[in-house]
Nucleic acid binder design. Structure first.
Lengths: 205, 205
DNA sequence: TGTACATCAGTGAACGCGCGTTCACTGATGTAC
DNA sequence: TGTACATCAGTGAACGCGCGTTCACTGATGTAC
């Protein structure tokens, strides 16, 4: 696994990590194939032994991100069980935690412009991630009287949008947007108000 | 105003519009100074008669975007008066309408990476836009009993985040994210649930 | 009204740069016998 | 265990490209007299 002279050992992963670092430091535009190669201690041409090109490298970084993301969400969901409410809240917190802990992956996934339909693998893993949130929403919506129950996919879309908005606007060292509150609190309280609006939390709780 | 041979007439604005078109078509990365100049029918060097450089051009596009944005939000707020609720809902709708109608500006403002603190003018106009939403939230929070009233700035941050999330995830021809619902409906219903959670809309309405 | 002149918005050529990508190559590694 | 050989991950030089930026220039415009 360690570098052993001529052959790198694990160049493929080293390139992905260099790319993620670059993205984290300089934004989605800041990543170049040449610079990533340089950081991995290798000639730019070596990249082509492992990837089809620049786009392919970012796509793989994003794919790994979705994989982690889906795992993290699934874990949060599971550990919040058997309460539908706590499982749902845990996934919300996990969303923000993921964005904080894996900023490079997050940017590669959501801000780099690569399409989730680029490859079947990418589409599959992003669908898996989305399904966790939808499942959590569906469980929870069982507790809403059927006649006033919104579609679970709408409700998970609301939470997803809120989470993504909080990340983009307040959790990033964003363009001058000073966060008025810690993003975690903002998301937590926003979800709280939302769930109360659905009648899933008591009015005084 | 019309092109009159050697002198362009209104090159400065023509460059900004070319830049906005490019951004709209190809994303924040898709804009190059040279291509914008070409579209305006002019040599790249001519750009330097009107802007300090590439960044300065984008920043000016963003500034004009914030100006329009603030106006649109203000107009929505005013026309929803005197009801605090309808004023608030109108600003929410205006947010999405702005993102739809002025995609180039929106991207320049929120996705191009330019900081709002780049110039005092930019900081001022973005603060003006933000203030409209905060005012609408503050008006509305008058209707919440003081002891359970969240800070108006938190509440406007929630709505801003939700709106931004809806735009980024569902209103853009986003990376394979097929919108499960029309973004307008999604935002409207999301805000509805949220306001119900604050006790500002009756439970059956 | 006509002429001389200052202004300045544009040209066009040139620059250095880093990019992504290609290619023939080389030398380390692992395997067959 | 030792040798011959196939594999293939890396090199390094080269490419064409478009980028942002600079510079001395030119010629259209507007103004003073």
């Amino acid at each position: 696994m360690a570098k052993r002279g001529y052959h790198h050992g694990n160049l493929r992963q080293a390139l992905i990590e260099a790319a993620l670092d670059l993205i984290t430091e300089k934004g989605p535009t800041g990543f170049t194939l040449s610079e990533a190669a340089k950081r991995a201690g290798v000639t730019p041409a070596a990249v082509y032994r492992h990837f089809e090109g620049r786009e392919d490298l970012i796509a793989e970084a994003a794919r790994q991100g979705y994989e982690i993301f889906a795992d993290v969400m699934q874990y949060a969901y599971d550990s919040g069980q058997p309460s539908a409410l706590s499982a749902f809240e845990a996934t919300g917190r996990a969303y923000l935690a993921f964005a904080r802990k894996y900023p490079g992956h997050y940017i590669a996934m959501f801000e780099s412009g690569i399409s989730v339909n680029r490859t079947p693998e990418l589409a599959a893993v992003s669908a898996r991630a989305r399904r966790v949130l939808e499942q959590a929403a569906a469980d929870l919506s069982q507790h809403i009287p059927p006649e006033k129950r919104p579609p679970a996919s709408m409700f998970s879309a609301h939470i997803w949008a809120l989470s993504h908005g909080v990340v983009e606007l307040f959790a990033r060292n964003s363009p001058g947007t000073v966060a008025p509150f810690p993003p975690e609190d903002l998301l937590e309280s926003g979800i709280g108000v939302y769930l109360r609006g659905l009648g899933l939390i008591g009015p005084d709780q």
